[in-house]
Nucleic acid binder design. Sequence first.
DNA 1: TGTACATCAGTGAACGCGCGTTCACTGATGTAC
DNA 2: TGTACATCAGTGAACGCGCGTTCACTGATGTAC
Lengths: 236, 236
Amino acid sequence: MSASQTARQRARAELTREIKQEARRQLAHDGPQGLSLRAVARELGMASSAIYRYFPSRDDLLTALIIEAYNSLGERAEQAVAARPRAGVRDRWAACCDAVRGWALQNPHEYALIYGSPVPGYQAPQETVPPASRVAIVIGGLLSESWAARGEDAGDNPGPARSPALPPPLDQQAAVIAAAIAPEVPGPMVARGLIAFVQLFGMISFELFGQFVGGADPADSFFRFTVGEMAEFVGL
Amino acid sequence: MSASQTARQRARAELTREIKQEARRQLAHDGPQGLSLRAVARELGMASSAIYRYFPSRDDLLTALIIEAYNSLGERAEQAVAARPRAGVRDRWAACCDAVRGWALQNPHEYALIYGSPVPGYQAPQETVPPASRVAIVIGGLLSESWAARGEDAGDNPGPARSPALPPPLDQQAAVIAAAIAPEVPGPMVARGLIAFVQLFGMISFELFGQFVGGADPADSFFRFTVGEMAEFVGL
DNA sequence: TGTACATCAGTGAACGCGCGTTCACTGATGTAC
DNA sequence: TGTACATCAGTGAACGCGCGTTCACTGATGTAC
């Protein structure tokens, strides 16, 4: 039964994949706004109306691409950290940053889709939230681990101790973030972790969107340097 | 003669302004990709072909908008700093950051136009470079001033001294940047200044593009905190 | 100050193209007995 | 194992809309004498 079901279902799964793949190709040429169901259908050799058997509208296809992009990126970050269980927190932080940047350089248009300008008229549904959180969760885990291991090398890492207590409402926001992804970690360290997080994506956006041209381009060296500086800044 | 010339010329200048203004309005609804000469003409009550007397193509109109956006932002940053000649460097750094963010919040679509995803198929011409550099020049000036005044409060600002020498090719890139906008300032401080610069725009992009939602949103408090942390980090 | 000519703004029709979505339909695949 | 029926993938035409750009043109504004 499950095998015979699969005859049709497998064809459906396959075509769904092909549609998304072709859509990703179009993203690269025309951006999210240029994503066209008709063009996808044309490229796949089917009637434009047939796409509607797979995605009820253009926006649903866009949502599927966004979720896939977040998951693909999140998975890369998770694997980069998980692959180095014996490495220190700083090394895993660096590996995570490299993984995120590597993914972005390999998939610049999907990066732009999720971290670039919002698509006019498109509202991301709630289902995108969990995939979108995966990288933050990875980094939160590193913060937690680093905090839990404090004292062992406290001399090297005065880190967050330099920061005064957070002003409201940032203190509350940091507490909420900590509760979600880095329990036990004190507010100032969470806030600095958020700064490092913003720095990571800020750098990648600058690099991909061409703001470094004539300055820190190629950006490899600056990226590596900054990742190290941020590790120290956060107190990892 | 110059007054009679102006009769026609003034009309031309006026309409040019109106076209750009209407184009900016459209940017807000449909993004750069949705910018349509026909729609601009329609809204202005003129034939679509008439626009071509003012802008030879859609991309030229886009270029004009980009240059205006960079100039508008750059001017705001310059004024924020110039308006506080007696303030300390840190206060002027903060004023500059506030000005940039304030402009971005007031002009989110123009911000996205210059710091968001690149417009597919559009290549920014060289004329956009000088306007695009204005904020960096302001910040470079603050670095220079701070460095020149070193020693006076050196106790508070170990700053860049903590950083080791820069690895190549970052050392060279930093030297080029320093030569352009912050002469005399040593490489590590330039690199940290660049980090702060990236942080500033990274934060604003996160805020405007919705990445803070559910975390540090509203972002005022986090922004203020980060601007202070960055001042210390750079050693201002 | 007045006239003849050149410049330029703006028109409206046309070219050739694109899009998302709906709908009635054909024909193949899957299911229940 | 075979038949009757339901499900579903895919078609092709249509609706109503949009776009950038070109071109021959009219008529007003500006200039040189």
